[in-house]
Every structure is written in C-alpha cells, then in structure tokens.
Design a protein around this nucleic acid. Structure first.
Length: 488
RNA sequence: GGUGCGGUGGCGAAGUUGGCUAACGCUGCGGACUGCAAAUCCGCCAUUCGUCGGUUCAAAUCCGACCCGCACCUCCA
C-alpha cells in the first residue's frame, strides 16, 4: 500500500492507523527492555533492532524522539540466579546491564534517551501503588499489595480478553490473599535474603508490572505516543500496565501499542526447555552484528521469523551486496578526486552537494519512504535499497566515460548512505579499520603478484592471491588496476 | 475451550481496502568482462499464490467451507 504518511499498526485497535504525535514534531516512546539476569538472547535482539529502527525513521521524518527503555534489575529471576551464584542481586543485574550495552552496540542499536532502572525508581513505584490503594483500585493483604482487576472496567481492552475467559482458563495456583485470580501483585512482601525497600506496607519490593507504569510516567507523562515490546508482553504485562496507569491517572496511557513477532528455531518457539536457546553472544561468534541486524530487518517486524545458520548466511550474502556498492562508491571518489576549494571558494564536493535529487533517484527515496510509512515495512525498504544499489553500480561504470554524471552519482551515493543509515545498516567492513599496519605487507604481495602476472607466471600469481585470501584480503583485478579489501 | 497470527518459486520474503508482465535477495543456469578468478553487468528460473467452491469483466488479494502450522491465555522479547 502506498502511503504518503506514516501508518502504524496499533494493537489496541487491531488495525493500521495514521500516526499523529500528541505534540507536533515530538514523539515519546517507551520500549520494554530486558530483565538483566543473563546475556541477551536472539529473541531480545529483535525488539531492540526493530524499535531502534522505528526510532531512527521517526527521527528521519523530523520528529524529536524521547526514547525510554528500562532495565528490570529487580526481579525473581535475578534473585534466583544471584542465590545460585552466591552474588548480590543488584550487582549481578548491574553486570548484565553493561553486557547488554556491548551487545546492543554490536547490533548498532543506539542508546536510548533514558535507560531507567527499577532499583532507582522505588520511590516513584511506591507513590503509584499508594495512589492506587487510595483510589480503591488496589488492596493490601498480608504485606502484599494487589491490583483489583474487576475495578478497572477496561481491563482486557489491549489483549481482547474478558475476565470471565481468564477465570475459566486460569491454571495457576490462586494465591489465598487475592480477591480474584486475575488480580496481580503491585508490591511483594520481602522474603529473607532478597533486596527490599521500606514502604507503607512494610519491607518489600515492586511487582513486575508496576515499574513500567511508574517509569513511563516519570519520563513521558500520563499520556505518551508509543509503547512497544514483544508480542508476549501484550498479556498480561501491557494489559496490567494500562490498568495501573489509567486507573491512577484517569487518562489514556499510550496511544499506539506496537508489538514485534517472535523468533522461532525450526518453526518452534525459542525456549530453554526445548534446548534451542541462542544467546546473541554465541551468534556473534559466527556472524558480524551487522548481518544479524540486517537479517532481523529483512522480515516485517510483526511476522514470525525463523532462525538458523543457513538463513543468516544468505542474509550475509545480501548485505555484502550492499557493502560492495558502498565500497565501489568510495573507490569511485578516490579515482575521481574531488577538488578542494581554495580558501574562500567552495570545494567541488560542496558544489556537487548543492544539487537536488531528480528523476529515478528521487523515486528511490519516495519508494523507500512509502515502504517505511506502511507500518515500517523494512523488508520492502531493503528491496528498494537493492534496486538503488544496482542502479548506482551502473552509474559508477557510466561516470568513467561521462564525467558530467558526477553530480548524479554524488547525490545518489549520498541518498544511499542516508537510507542505509535510517535502517542502521553498517556497510563499512569492520576489518577495514584496524588493519592499517598490514597494509604495506599486503601491497608488497600485490606488487609481487602483478609482476608474476606480467611474466605470465599465473601459478605464482594465484598462489599469492590464495595466500592473501586466507588473511581475509580479497583481490579484484580491474581495468583501473588491482582493488583489494578485507572481508571477515 | 477462548484470543490472535500465518500458509506465495529450491530457500528467504514483499504484495492481501481486486486490475500493469507476482517485487526484492540468496541459490542455480546461460552470456559479457577476466590469464583464471572476484566484483560488476546482461539474460533465464512460480500460467501460479494451502485445498475446494463462490462473487466479479477482473482475485494471491473479497465471501464460504475445509486442511495445516504457530503463538498467547502461566515467567518469557
């Protein structure tokens, strides 16, 4: 569907809607972040990359985005793991927060505007719980505080469930102190050895859902634009957030709810019990982060995505195609040196940059945006990128004989860089940077090979080429001479 | 049982408020280029979109039935 304006699929309404921010030019966005009790797995990586891309595109459209992503650093899973490893739970969580940033960086995921942690917002949480108790939406029971679901008439509006179904389907042990099986904990009474804080209900710690209500309110206000996360969070987590926030403030919490689809392994959900659990760390041993990111974006974010090594390998090939165009583009400028401006005059580059995109080049940009406007259709956007790359490859060849096309190439190259940046695709090969010291040695070998070729000693020439290949150096013989680059 | 999602070529994946030749990538095949490669370029690879009916001048796209897969309803991105 062609769209001139951004349309977003909203879980709340179950359909695509035009995206109109609350305040023009500004977008407040909250994304549920990880519980930091381990390195992140592939399933965590998808929302990171997807919503980072959503943010980048919103910024590309000119919005100022306040992007909030929390860390759940107080939680049962953390406490259990800390007990096992005889560590302090808060320290353990802090460790994995740092590790998280390393993984995010590998995926070229930008830092959020704010990364709040539960442990630093206990005060906000207590205030919120207290307000809910005062308003009659929550009740205290033996040191625990529960949200009384039946008091909130909109309960189930996000997940499209009603309380009666929930009751029928409930398979969990019903806690004695709860008035209704679907009531959920806002505050939990402390157990020995757990991190706890004092509260009006005694020592304790927050329940799982309350943190997001408290922190989103703190940084984005009562009503904000986008709330996002994995599909599994729709119920109960996001449903409960809505109940807490809207019961307390009497206003809509988030206007657009976005949820990414799941990653499966061999068509099955990734889970520890099935033994098909992949840590991002382990995948990064085999593939660069850029490939993982590209792979995650090659499917629409709401579709399920099946993972295996062959599929990543195919994605790597595809990404390399874009990287080749990027490399060719840089080569082209090296061979067509842009003239520096004398003092007081413009450089050639500045003059070229003043041109405007026209014709087919403008079309690529429009088609890319139409794709992204259609609920962030990154798969289609990438297809446009491939077509653009293909057209640029042709133009690079043409410009050799037709220098007047230089400006066209310059602008097309700029567009290519701009659009790949919107998707956060990294096209400069990582190896290129850190291996300057090898340069002399490599060039000496290339020189030696060239001599061998001249004297038609192709055996030696091929041997040198293979030798370099083992070091990750790829040679290409072109009419303009030998071109070489690193490939991981 | 309730709720939701999906079934498109060898693989991945767009397109699904009906209408140009069913995108794009990977793989494969043929050709150009090359000493050979690599990269690039040119061309080919689904009469067909889970199945069966229906509506229509026209359907992958709408309607009905059926088959299959998955997820959520319990901690989970």
């Amino acid at each position: 569907m062609k769209q001139n304006e951004l349309q977003v699929y909203n879980t709340l309404s179950g359909r695509k809607e035009p995206f109109v921010p609350l305040e023009e030019g500004k977008v407040g966005m909250y994304v549920c972040g990880p519980t930091t009790y381990n390195y992140i797995h592939l399933g965590n990586a998808r929302p990171l990359v997807v919503f980072d891309t959503v943010r980048r595109y919103l910024e590309y459209l000119g919005h100022e985005v306040t992007y909030v992503q929390n860390f759940t650093d107080v939680d049962d899973k953390i406490i259990n793991k800390a007990l096992e490893e005889k560590q302090n739970p808060l320290e353990l969580a802090a460790f994995y927060v740092e590790e998280y940033f390393q993984d995010a960086e590998a995926l070229n995921v930008r830092r959020a505007t704010i990364h709040p942690k539960v442990s630093q917002h206990i005060g906000n949480i207590i205030e919120l719980v207290q307000a809910l108790v005062e308003k009659g939406y929550a009740y205290e029971s033996e040191g625990d505080v529960y949200f009384e679901v039946s008091k909130f008439t909109d309960y189930g509006k996000l997940s499209k469930r009603d309380l009666n179904d929930l009751q029928a389907g409930a398979r969990v042990e019903v806690a004695e102190q709860k008035r209704h099986p679907a009531d959920f904990a806002l505050w939990k009474k402390a157990k020995a050895g757990e991190p706890s804080w004092s509260s009006p209900w005694g020592e304790g710690r927050p329940g799982w859902h309350i943190e997001c209500s408290a922190m989103s309110h703190e940084y984005l206000g009562e009503t904000f634009d986008i709330h996002a996360g994995g599909m599994d969070l729709i119920f109960p987590h996001h449903e409960n957030e809505i109940a807490q926030s809207e019961a307390c403030h009497g206003s809509q919490m988030a206007r657009y709810w976005l949820h990414n689809g799941f990653i499966t392994i061999n068509q099955e959900k990734m889970s520890k019990s099935l033994g098909n659990f992949f840590l991002l760390r382990d995948i990064l041993q085999k593939f660069p982060g850029a490939v993982v990111r590209f792979y995650l974006l090659s499917t629409h974010y709401r579709s399920p995505l099946d993972f295996d090594d062959q599929k990543l390998a195919a994605a790597q090939k595809g990404l390399e195609r874009l990287q080749t165009t990027n490399r060719l583009l840089k080569e082209a400028w090296k061979n067509n040196v842009l003239e520096e401006g004398k003092s007081g005059t413009k450089s050639e580059q500045q003059i070229l940059a003043e041109g405007e995109l026209t014709g087919e080049w403008l079309d690529y940009k429009i088609r890319f945006m139409e794709a992204m406007n259609d609920d962030f259709n990154t798969a289609l956007a990438i297809a446009v990128l491939f077509e653009l790359a293909h057209a640029i490859n042709g133009l690079i060849t043409a410009v050799v004989n037709e220098p007047q096309k230089k400006q066209e190439l310059f602008l097309a190259g700029k567009l290519f860089a701009e659009l790949t940046e919107v998707l956060g695709l990294e096209l400069d090969s990582a190896g290129q940077k850190g291996q300057e010291e090898l340069k002399e040695e490599i060039e000496a070998l290339i020189e030696k090979r060239q001599e061998a070729r001249k004297s038609k000693d192709y055996q030696l020439a091929d041997q040198i080429r293979d030798q370099l290949k083992e070091k990750g150096v790829i040679l290409e013989d072109t009419p303009q001479g030998v071109r070489w680059y690193f490939r991981e």
